[in-house]
Nucleic acid binder design. Structure first.
Length: 271
DNA sequence: AGCGGAACCTGTCGGC
DNA sequence: TGCCGACAGGTTCCGC
């Protein structure tokens, strides 16, 4: 489900309520979602205070009073929900943290792709340690991007999904960013000139900032904490709009497939 | 090293 | 109504 704006929205909301709360206990209702030893996870999380919540790429990092961190990835359909401790379990509840104040924090996930993992050192986490630039990193420039892409012949849209390059973009925003930048998603990454890469970076920051302002995009599964919807779906210009008219040039929006994933573009605006 | 395709799992929707 | 395939905001693994 979620990309940077969605994850950041969730992190912001968790950060408002979780720090200082104690995890009284933890139940794992679906084994595979917790990486490593279930018993050890439950035991080491028990009776720890939550210190802070942060985003790294699409990961959510929950730091505990023990300095250990719970690394959460929502993948496609993961979400967090607060419920009264006594409320009945829902079908898709996968991991439940019992908090103080008779509340529980539920990690709910229809498809069970999501993951939770307890680590002592963030650098030891495989995915996290390999993340590329944060979109707002000052080190992320057109020049650096050009250098990193010099041996990559994959379509630029596919490159934008590579978390080792830029961390946080996903299928919706990759399409929206390339539309905003006026760049065709099929262009091989290493063929883009400095100036085009600069406009991709500019569009990326613009789109992400706007999406964050509207708390992300709720099309099917993504919800904020407690099932609230984001609103950026009302501002999408190409994603999910196959055969509709482009708002700029009235061409028909196209849907193509790249690397087994849908890409949306305007053939009139994106060259 | 770079790249494409299958796999992970569940639900929904459209066509016949 | 029922079955069947296609598709879904992501990542990882495997083989060329």
């Amino acid at each position: 489900m979620p990309e940077l704006p969605e994850i950041q929205t969730i992190v912001n909301e968790l950060e408002r309520v979780l720090p200082g709360k104690r995890i009284k206990s933890c139940r794992v209702l679906r084994d595979k979602m917790v990486q490593g030893d279930q018993h050890r996870f439950r035991q080491q999380v028990k009776n720890k205070n939550i210190r802070k919540i942060e985003r790294r790429g699409k990961y959510i990092v929950i730091t505990l009073s023990s300095s250990q961190m719970i690394i959460v990835h929502l993948r496609m359909t993961g979400k967090f929900i607060f419920q009264p401790l006594k409320s009945p379990a829902q079908k898709h509840d996968r991991v439940v943290f019992e908090l103080q104040n008779q509340q529980k924090l539920i990690f709910s996930d229809v498809r069970c792709f999501g993951t939770l993992e307890l680590v002592n050192d963030i650098n030891k986490h495989n995915g996290l340690s390999q993340l590329g630039f944060d979109p707002w990193s000052r080190q992320l420039t057109a020049g650096i991007l050009q250098k990193k892409l010099e041996n990559r012949q994959i379509p630029i849209k596919t490159a934008l999904l590579d978390q080792k390059l830029i961390a946080g973009l996903g299928n919706i925003y990759a399409s929206e960013i390339l539309f905003d930048a006026g760049i065709h998603p099929d262009i091989p990454a290493n063929q883009l000139k400095h100036e085009k890469l600069a406009s991709i970076i500019r569009s990326m920051r613009k789109i992400l900032r706007l999406a964050l302002k509207y708390n992300g995009t709720s099309i099917s599964d993504y919800r904020r904490i407690d099932e609230k919807q984001g609103m950026f779906q009302n501002f999408l210009k190409v994603y999910g709009k196959a055969d509709q008219k482009c708002i700029n040039c009235s061409s028909s929006i196209m849907k193509i497939t790249q690397n087994q994933r849908s890409t949306f573009l305007c053939p009139g605006c994106q060259k």
